[in-house]
Each structure stands twice: as structure tokens, then as C-alpha cells.
Design a protein around this nucleic acid. Structure first.
Lengths: 349, 349
DNA sequence: TTGTAGGCGTTATCAT
DNA sequence: ATGATAACGCCTACAA
């Protein structure tokens, strides 16, 4: 047997380990990659040698030979997008336990995303998770790569069954919100909807009305509007809805003149509404119950704390990784409902 | 010359390109990697062949042979940390122009960061940018890897000159804030400071007093306190400072009884203060000028819009990449001042 | 079960 | 400047 000396400066290779453990490189490879299950003396010798030499695999060599890079690609529109950030925080530790690594691409437009998709697949990632740029249907771009790499789209719209998708069940969220508000004693409700490029907003708006009717709650068309997802917008909407509150107090059909509950498309809108209500001396939740969306960290810092819908990020990640592991052959579409986190802003009186 | 046919299914390799262009693989490699500057017929033939075969390098093979992975590692405490998110958004496009890719690690604690650092360096990243976990000095961990990989620490404390660091010049930020408030007509000022584990907070607090004195502004020790970086904290502090405002109105030494300006350690604190001032019927900026920190997206949605300090993220990224390119041999420490974005909350009356 | 040996695609070395 | 060839470290088909 030829003993291969290891220069002190360079990183140890499988050959050095083999020499030290007195076995062949093939055996070292098999032991360390878990293809050899027995835990006998040989296995222990190999592991001890690897430990002593501070050996770690050369992923480049491994990938070159086996076409597996132990790398997951993630493409997001922006790290400052809350859903993307939450997904990142959830995803990174989950893939690390498989000794995989996260290759990140950021693209805020359809075109940039297509570019990044090209770069990521050129790196031979083992799987790809994509959050589409806002208002974008990435289907045809994704399909170009789906043949070679398992791709999972998270959220957004999609017009094909060639690639997998995991998305948030917004209709279920609306159902949960309305039901909760009805049970908390609200008799009327308004919906400060989000303004999206897609049809989704309109669909959700219809869902709101369906749910309100089925709970025999009261609402007025002019109460609910589409708009920006900003604090300012929430403030203005609430001012419009409740601004002349004093003139009306005491009337026993008050709940028909102004809503007793607000469903907001975003926590920021809810914050703005709460500021306005505070300025108007209306109490939350006694006079007006509020439900936000997104469960942003700030939701716990308002007074009272904001009831909000938390995106099912953990399940999304778990499902996405499961679909990637299943390979590109078996695309599936999965919808997961957000969780309603009930806090002070919507509790029953 | 032996012509190597390319199976339609597999990806094209350098060999296929060489065959099609009627040159050797060595020449193809040289042309495509830019080691051959001349743009003669050969170069054009090679590029045309690569284009036609839709060739793209196999990074694994390239890395195996040359020890360059075209990969930058980034280690952050959390994607929901604003600075980390902004850095991500800024960094990703800048390294993409070098055809590099971003390998992301997330670790919220010292221990997790050490683990991720291990994983990232095991991937042979060409360089590493690290934002330390809050209140953590990563120096000794970083030094273990700095010998082999250029590492740049962003922000935080550091006790060594073995690794490079780029950080935000908080003292310059404080100087700019106080100067601006003095010039906007404020006669007194309070500082709602952040509560950190490190000494930094105390140092910055001292800097506040130094600057206030040199501008001959008025302040009281009990006005300024350390605390959380939350909306709630800002609300409470403002209520404490301005709560009995009505009793005092009209006094001509009013500016000595309550501050005419607030410097907040975080935009969230400023938001809370603005809510409180609104509730107390005090006007921003006429009665109280406010400066936040972080220039969060919400800063543009308040009324009036919030003056805030924007972290110099773009310069940070540029400097970090420059230091990485310079290699591990030349560590440097660089401080960059934030930019004061002046908006309505602090404009002169 | 273990060892031998060939090859993955690229780049560096060396000779031309 | 170009081409032939070896080598990077690992995995795996095949032989023992």
C-alpha cells in the first residue's frame, strides 16, 4: 500500500483519510456517505481518521462526479418582502440539516427573475423554490427549466400543471376572519382590500361578501375599497368611515352607519386604522374590532395587540422541500391556510 | 482530429464546443474565460460554437480544477433583520455582474453562526461577508477561517486587525442629527437610545451629550433613556415627556420643560412617539421635531413623513466586495456614515 | 464486503 | 499563441 502524505497546508482529501485508516478510498467514500451501514472496526477507523485530519468533502469534486450539488436554489423578488424574508428564515435551517446549502437569487421583475433562474440552474441546483415577482405569472419561464430541475413555485398565479406550486389559501383566511369577527360579537364589517395586478383581489373581495352574507353580518358596498397596503391608507380609510362618529353616537342602529369590525389586507393598513380610531376616541376592540394580515413583528407592539393572519411559512417550506425531494416527475398543487392569531384587537367585549 | 458528438439530451461540454469550432479544448477554455484577449477569427468561432450549443460552464469542474468557486458567502443573523435584508438586496445584483453566486447562511446566535461559517467555508467560497449576531463579537470564530478565505465583517464590534471590517459610523450619524435639529430651530432635544448588550450604546449616548453641548442645545438627563426599539416604547416615552403638556403651554421657558426635538434610535420608536404626540395634540415638526434611524419603508408613509438616517448599504457592499477581491492578506477597517434623509418631521418652521 | 481503476469537465503545465 | 495531456477529488462499475 502506498501511503500518501498530506502537506500540512492543504485540505485533507479522501486519499489521506484512506491512507491513515489503512483502507481504500472507495471504502472511505462509502463509509462517509452512509452507503455502508455497518458500524464495525473499519467504519470507526475511517471516521477517526477523517476526524483527525479535519477532513471535509470537496463538494466540487463530488458534484462533478455524481451530478448532485447538495444545493437548493431560492429565487425571491426582494429580501425586504416580508413573505420572502420569513421563508428564508424558515428554509435555511431546514436544508442545513441535510447538509445542503442555500443559493439565493433576487429578482424584482419578470426579466430579472428569468436571468437569475438561468444562473441558478447553471449551477445545477438540486431543487428550486421560486416566489414570483409581484403580479407576475412565471409559468412559461419555469417550464423551460422544469424538465431538468424540480421547481416549486410559492404563491402567485400559475397556469400550468407542469410545475409544482404551494400557495396560501386566501379564501380560507377570509372565511376564518369573518367567522371570528362574527363570533366576537361584531354585527357589521368592512374590508380594506389590497390592490393587486392580478384577479386575486377581486376574487377575494367576492369571497368577503359571500362570507358576510352567510354569517348574516351587515355591510355596505361603500365601506369597502381597494387600495394601497400602507399605514397612511389605513388612516385615511378609517377617518372616512368613522370621522363623523360623534354626530351618530347613541343611535341604536349605529352598527348600520359604521362598521363594528375591519378586515385589513395588511397589518400596515390595520396600524393606520388604529391610529385614526385612537385619534377619534373610538375604542379597540369595544367599538371596532380589527383583523390584520401578515402577522408582522409590529403586530405585537400596538395597543391593543393586533389580531392577524400568519402565513403558514413553516408548512410551505416543508411541502416545498418534500415536492423537490419527490423529483420533477410528480408536480402537485398545494394550498395551505394561514393561521389566525387572535389578540386584543378583536376579542369579544 | 476526433470529433466528439454531443448527445442531444446532455448539456454541452467544452469538448463539444472545441469540436464544433475546430480548436482544442484548451483554446476554448482560454477564450471563454477571458484569458485570451485577442478577438480574431478563432475567438469568434469559439463563441459562435458555444452559443450554438447553448454551452455553459460546469462550475463544479471549474472549481475542482482551479479552486475558484465563483461563489460569495453571506452570513446574517436573520432575513427579517432590516440591515441584513437591505444588504441582501444590494449585494445580490452586484455579485451577479461578476457571474458569481450568493451562498446564504443564517444564524441568530454565536453558536449557529459558527456552524454556518463552517458550512460556508467547506464550500470553498471565494469570500465571506458576515453580519454578527446581535451583541456578539465573532472575532475569534472569524480568525479561524480568515487564513484561507477573505472575510469581511459588517457592523458590530471587533477586537482584532486580522480580519476586515466595514461598519456604520454611528458617531457621525449622531453629529449629523444634532446639527440638523439645531439648524431647524430646536432649542432642546432628547435622545431615546437603544439598549444593546455592547458598549456601543453608552458610547453613543456620550456622543449625544457632547454634540448637544457643542451646539449649545438644552437637554435634561431624565429626558433621555435606554430602551427597546419598539413602537410601544416610543409611545410610552413620548407620553412621559409630553403628557402634561397642557399645564405648561404658554410658558416662555417651555423648551426647558420638554424637548423640542427627539432623536430616536429606531424608526419604530419614532412612529410610537408620533402617535403619542398626535394623541396629545402636539404638532410635528412645529412643536416637536423628530429624527428616526434606519429609513424603513414605513418612514415615507407617516404624516408628516419621517426624517431618518439611511444606512450606507450600497457603499458597505461595494467596500466589502473590494476588500474580498483584495484577498485575505490586507485586512482593513472602514467606517461609513449614514445619510440623513430630511423629511417633514424635522423641517424648520 | 473490499479494492482497483476509470472518468466526470475543466484548467494548468509543458512542449511545440 | 496553440495543442496535447495530466491532474483536481470524488464516486461507482466491476473485479476479486
Amino acid at each position: 500500500m502506498v501511503t500518501t502524505a498530506k502537506p500540512a497546508s492543504a485540505a485533507a482529501s479522501i486519499t489521506n483519510v484512506a491512507a491513515l485508516a489503512n483502507v481504500s478510498t472507495a471504502t472511505v467514500s462509502r463509509v462517509l456517505s452512509g452507503k455502508r451501514t455497518k458500524d464495525d472496526d473499519i467504519a470507526r477507523r475511517v471516521r477517526a481518521a477523517a476526524e483527525e485530519l479535519n477532513y471535509s468533502v470537496n463538494y466540487a469534486a463530488s458534484a462533478l462526479r455524481s451530478d448532485v450539488t447538495n444545493t437548493i436554489g431560492l429565487l425571491i423578488p426582494s429580501a425586504t418582502d416580508p413573505l420572502s424574508a420569513q421563508l428564508l428564515d424558515e428554509l435555511e435551517p431546514m436544508i442545513d440539516v441535510d447538509a445542503q446549502q442555500l443559493l439565493l437569487g433576487i429578482g424584482a421583475t419578470r426579466e430579472l427573475q428569468a436571468e437569475r433562474l438561468e444562473s441558478l440552474t447553471a449551477r445545477n441546483v438540486d431543487g428550486l423554490i421560486v416566489i414570483p415577482a409581484p403580479g407576475t405569472d412565471p409559468t412559461d419561464t419555469l417550464e423551460r427549466f422544469a424538465r431538468h430541475t424540480p421547481i416549486v413555485q410559492v404563491g402567485g398565479r400559475q397556469s400550468s400543471f407542469r410545475t409544482s406550486m404551494v400557495s396560501i389559501d386566501e379564501n380560507a383566511a377570509m372565511e376564518a376572519s369573518v367567522r371570528h369577527l362574527a363570533e366576537s360579537g361584531a354585527r357589521s364589517v368592512a374590508y380594506l382590500a389590497g390592490k393587486d395586478v392580478s384577479f386575486e383581489s377581486a376574487e377575494l373581495f367576492a369571497m368577503f361578501h359571500t362570507q358576510v352574507r352567510s354569517r348574516t353580518l351587515f355591510t355596505r358596498n361603500e365601506w369597502s375599497q381597494f387600495g394601497e397596503r400602507t399605514v397612511q391608507r389605513g388612516f385615511h380609510c378609517a377617518m372616512r368611515l368613522f370621522g363623523d362618529a360623534l354626530d351618530r353616537s347613541g343611535r341604536d342602529d349605529l352598527y348600520r352607519l359604521r362598521p363594528e369590525a375591519l378586515i385589513c389586507c395588511d397589518d400596515a393598513v390595520a396600524f393606520g386604522a388604529m391610529i385614526a380610531l385612537d385619534a377619534l376616541d373610538l375604542r379597540v376592540p369595544q367599538d371596532v374590532r380589527i383583523v390584520g394580515y401578515g402577522d408582522s413583528p409590529l403586530a405585537m407592539t400596538t395597543m391593543p395587540q393586533l389580531t392577524s393572519l400568519r402565513p403558514p411559512v413553516q408548512q410551505i417550506v416543508a411541502e416545498a422541500l418534500r415536492l423537490i425531494a419527490a423529483g420533477p416527475a410528480t408536480p402537485a398543487h398545494i394550498m395551505l391556510p394561514p393561521q389566525l392569531i387572535i389578540r386584543g384587537s378583536s376579542r369579544a367585549a
